[in-house]
């Protein structure tokens, strides 16, 4: 196991380096630089600015300078947010997005799996069609539409929940459901299909031939096998949702990470682009690693032995 983890860590470093390299050069291929858009700056000031941020040096030199700092864990200074380091920006915004994201994943997975299991057991019955309906709505209605509807119903009409804001639990409920609804739909659909597939397997017939009751078969034999694909998608999904949603965070006024992904690119804030990208990449790779370990726990066939 120790050897396996070491190997995975080495791969992880290599992946991050590759992503950093590709992002670095792609980003510099975008026309313009952080100082081109807004006001016309006098050439001298432009020169000075560029010198300050090392942008006057050849690209390859900038690249190695960046890598040197990255190795120390320093993502640099934001080019657009005055006097703020990229590390500072990420670590102030990430906890908010992560809290929201994890809550949404929690709600999505719990409700989604429950709905999926009920639907599968009620194959072609009322609950099954209900679950399919929820799934279709959840997958096809964009989250900002839901967000707006939630704000209108619960915030404006019923006045039971705040329309926007951040800091207390009550502020979280609407955005969590707006974000999590898609997950509920997605997980329900996935779980339903898996359950139905597993229930047709030979070993379920074996379990039935043993005289086990239907609930015992579902709990002991079906769910554990049906949950494998759910775990697989869970890793990348969690990484994506924890790093924030631009749309949901903007609508509900949440100081999360979502907006930095978008702003960084629009403003060609080089260090912030790299920072957000690498942060997301690292989280994603870690999540995939966690999933691999989890997968082994659930499915002995792919358990990692020494």
């Amino acid at each position: 196991m120790g050897k396996y983890i070491t190997k995975r860590l080495i791969y992880m470093v290599i992946s991050i380096w590759l992503i950093a390299t590709v992002t670095f050069f792609l980003m510099h291929a975008i026309p313009g630089d952080p100082f081109t858009d807004s006001k016309k700056l006098p050439p001298e000031i432009m020169e000075n600015l560029k010198r300050k941020y090392n942008l006057d040096k050849p690209l390859i030199v900038q690249y190695f300078l960046y890598l040197k700092n990255l190795a120390k864990g320093d993502l640099g200074i934001s080019l657009r947010y005055k006097n703020r380091t990229v590390n500072g920006i990420l670590f102030s915004a990430f906890p908010n997005s992560a809290k929201l994201g994890l809550a949404a994943v929690g709600v999505g997975v719990t409700l989604g799996l429950t709905l999926g299991i009920i639907a599968a057991l009620n194959n072609k019955g009322f609950f099954d069609y209900f679950a399919i309906l929820v799934a279709v709505i959840g997958v096809s209605v964009p989250s900002f539409v839901l967000a707006g509807m939630f704000q209108y119903w619960f915030g404006v009409q019923l006045e039971i929940l705040p329309v926007a804001g951040w800091g207390k639990l009550k502020f979280m409920i609407l955005p969590v459901f707006a974000l999590g609804f898609r997950l509920i739909a997605f997980q329900a659909r996935l779980m339903r299909t898996n359950m139905i597939e597993i229930m047709g397997q030979d070993y379920i017939k074996t379990a039935k031939a043993k005289g086990l009751s239907k609930p015992a078969i579902v709990v002991k034999h079906v769910i554990r096998n049906a949950i494998l694909p759910v775990i697989t998608v869970l890793g990348p999904l969690t990484a994506a949702i924890m790093t924030g949603s631009f749309v949901i965070e903007s609508i509900f006024g949440i100081p999360g990470m979502g907006k930095y992904f978008v702003d960084a690119i629009n403003q060609r804030d080089y260090t912030l682009i790299l920072g957000t990208t690498l942060f997301y990449a690292t989280l994603l790779i870690m999540m995939v690693f966690v999933v691999d370990i989890l997968y082994g726990i659930v499915d002995p066939r792919i358990r990692i032995d020494e």
Binding site: D202, Y203, K205, T206, A207, R224, V298, D299
Partner: peptide, 15 residues
Amino acid sequence: GMIFQDPMTSLNPTM
């Protein structure tokens, strides 16, 4: 008691 044709698929792989 009953046994089936394909022993490869007749046992639960995760138990």
